[in-house]
Design a protein around this nucleic acid. Structure first.
Length: 538
RNA sequence: GGCCACGUGGCGGAGUGGUUACGCAACGGUCUGCAAAACCGUGUACCCCGGUUCAAUUCCGGGCGUGGCCUCCA
């Protein structure tokens, strides 16, 4: 199956063919680690995770090497750990430490947090995650090459890229040089031309500093754009297949990267395809600190399972603008609940420890191959979900499809459903426990530190005991000989129904309803016997 | 101001030069003693104006609206 991707440079969808059929190479701009990542950062991470999964799948199918299944996929996502924002944050947060130590603390802490966050969003680790500070040598090599070619010049201990004369500058972001000249302003560094950008700048006292290239005496540090050129070069070569990132990085970041790399290596192109994801808004407005609508992933994971955000994001095509709303989180949550219920109705909770697998469905791959049409893929999944019925094969196939997209994980999906059971408990205990369960559900699912212990303690204080299920869900178990009041009442009602004593039957149902227990009458599919199940209605 | 993207039913959101995804909500039905759940089915849309065409929501032009980048909150 051909994969089609929209290329920002040509503004066209094109069939993707790797330069090297043995190795598909993708580079995506990663986070600057100075603070919690927000949901705007989450979008490219999720989008390119899906693309990574798709590429690996197609590679395994042998799409690019005639069925030999020898293609590997190399996905590089950098970590920017040298940056003004990091310096500022470090000085603010650790005023007593030497700046360099403080910076290390900030970048260490923030990158660990980033990894925890995106893991909970169902994202796989990239093949390589290079850090800028470990690749200063490569950056300096690049800069020296550019100086040698007279593509860069030195001014006041800065090295600047000379944009004038680069024919294709502006082509990627579709901007004309002519206009940009008049609009550029407010620059910090000295420049011969306002369009030129910084490759290397002198460090202030206390800031991270390395020996400068080009014979500059004072120590300095790299500019932002050169990092990505250096790291993609080191791990993927002079020209590679896919360069990804948010549309907000298109100008100036990617335009400059492309100019540097192409000029340094005399390559016509840096990447074969440029893929950009659309911008994200929050409740119809731009997310900004001043508006106070800044939403971090970390904060969201306190109340929502990570998969819920992932599902909301995949419900919009990656190039479309995405309006993040609470309402959509709710609807994504219900949808996941529904899926888990359908799967477990057929496969049971024990699926959590099963290793059974099926091939990923063609329909799903087909949708993804059409420029990563995740809404189309989800439409396909919804159809599959409806068709599960009581067919275990379909249920397993559906589960595998969801797992492929990173939307479900069989070992940890029990808490996605609202179901919370317990045998032989009193309604009073169940209802109180259910409230606690509700408030801890996402925290438990996301395995937030301390959540499990606190949950267990609070249940214990009520007089219950927690039982963990194979799919990650929880139930209550009986701790004493207390009468199972709910079960009792249901049994009485079943008797009444058998007698056709509807008045008594409804009275019991009302009594339970008053306590917050909702009944559902079904038939056992095998025996045809009437069966009554219940759940806490809240 | 320059450039770019987007504007689809009550809401969310795909896609297409002719047959109108998908989810939620709504409505109708099946099942049920009733209810709930489940299942089945139905309706409603392509911002406005002009052009190209046998035919446009889809292509082109203009307008309006929203958002983004240009300006270290991505």
């Amino acid at each position: 199956m051909d994969l089609k991707l929209h290329d920002t440079l040509t503004r066209k969808k094109r069939v993707f063919k790797p330069l090297d059929p043995r190795n598909v190479r993708m580079y995506v701009c990663g986070p600057t680690v100075y603070d919690y990542a927000h949901i705007g950062n989450a979008r490219p991470v999720i989008v390119f995770d899906v693309l990574f999964r798709l590429l690996r799948h197609l590679a395994k199918q042998g799409v690019w090497d005639k069925g030999k299944d020898r293609t590997k996929v190399t996905y590089v996502r950098n970590i920017t750990d040298v940056d003004d924002k990091i310096n500022a944050r470090a000085a603010e947060e650790y005023p007593l430490l030497p700046l360099n130590r403080a910076i290390r603390e900030v970048t260490k802490k923030t990158s660990r947090q980033f990894h925890e966050d995106v893991k909970l969003l169902g994202c796989l680790r990239p093949s390589k995650e290079p850090r800028a500070t470990k690749h200063i040598a490569e950056m300096k090599k690049l800069i020296s090459r550019l100086i040698l070619k007279k593509r860069a010049y030195i001014l006041d201990d800065h090295v600047l890229f000379r944009v004038k004369g680069v024919r294709s500058y502006g082509r990627l972001s579709h901007r004309s040089l002519k206009y940009m000249k008049s609009s550029a302003r407010g620059e910090v560094a000295p420049k011969l031309n306002p369009l030129d950008f910084v490759l290397w700048k002198p460090s202030k006292r206390g800031e991270p500093a390395w020996k400068s290239p080009g014979g500059i005496k004072v120590r300095g540090r790299p500019g932002w754009h050169i990092e990505c050129s250096a790291m993609s070069w080191k791990y993927l070569g002079r020209e590679f297949d896919i360069h990804g990132g948010g549309i907000d990085l298109l100008f100036p970041h990617h335009e400059n990267e492309r100019a540097q790399s192409c000029q340094a290596f005399d390559e016509a192109e840096m990447a074969k395809v440029w893929v950009h994801n659309g911008f994200l808004q929050v409740e119809g407005k731009k997310m900004s600190k001043s508006l106070g609508n800044f939403v971090t992933i970390h904060e969201l994971l306190q109340t929502w399972p990570g998969e819920v955000l992932r599902l909301q994001m995949l419900n919009t095509h990656y190039r479309q603008p995405l309006d993040w709303t609470n309402a959509k989180m709710n609807s994504a949550q219900s949808e996941l609940e529904d899926w888990v219920i359908r799967i477990e109705k057929v496969l049971g909770k024990s699926i959590g420890k099963s290793r059974a697998k099926t091939e990923v469905s063609e329909g799903l791959i087909k949708a993804l191959c059409a420029d990563l049409n995740t809404p189309g893929a989800l439409a396909y999944l919804r159809q599959s979900a409806k068709r599960i019925g009581d067919d275990p094969k379909r249920a397993l196939s559906f589960l595998c499809d969801c797992e492929f997209l990173g939307l479900l994980n069989r070992r940890n999906m029990g808490l996605l459903s609202r179901e919370f059971g317990g045998q032989g408990q009193s309604p009073d205990l169940m209802i109180k426990a259910f409230d606690i369960y509700q408030s801890f559900r996402s925290k438990l699912h996301n395995k937030l530190p301390g959540a499990k212990l606190e949950f267990e303690n609070r249940i214990r204080r009520l007089g219950g005991e927690v039982k963990y299920l194979e799919d990650g869900g929880v139930h209550l178990i009986q701790t004493d000989d207390s009468v199972g009041k709910i079960d009792d009442l249901i049994a009485k009602r079943t008797e009444a129904r058998a007698r056709k004593d509807w008045i008594e039957s409804d009275r019991i149902r009302d009594e339970l309803a008053k306590m917050g227990v909702a009944l559902k009458d079904t038939k056992d599919p095998e025996t045809g016997e009437p069966k009554t199940t219940w759940e806490i209605a809240r």
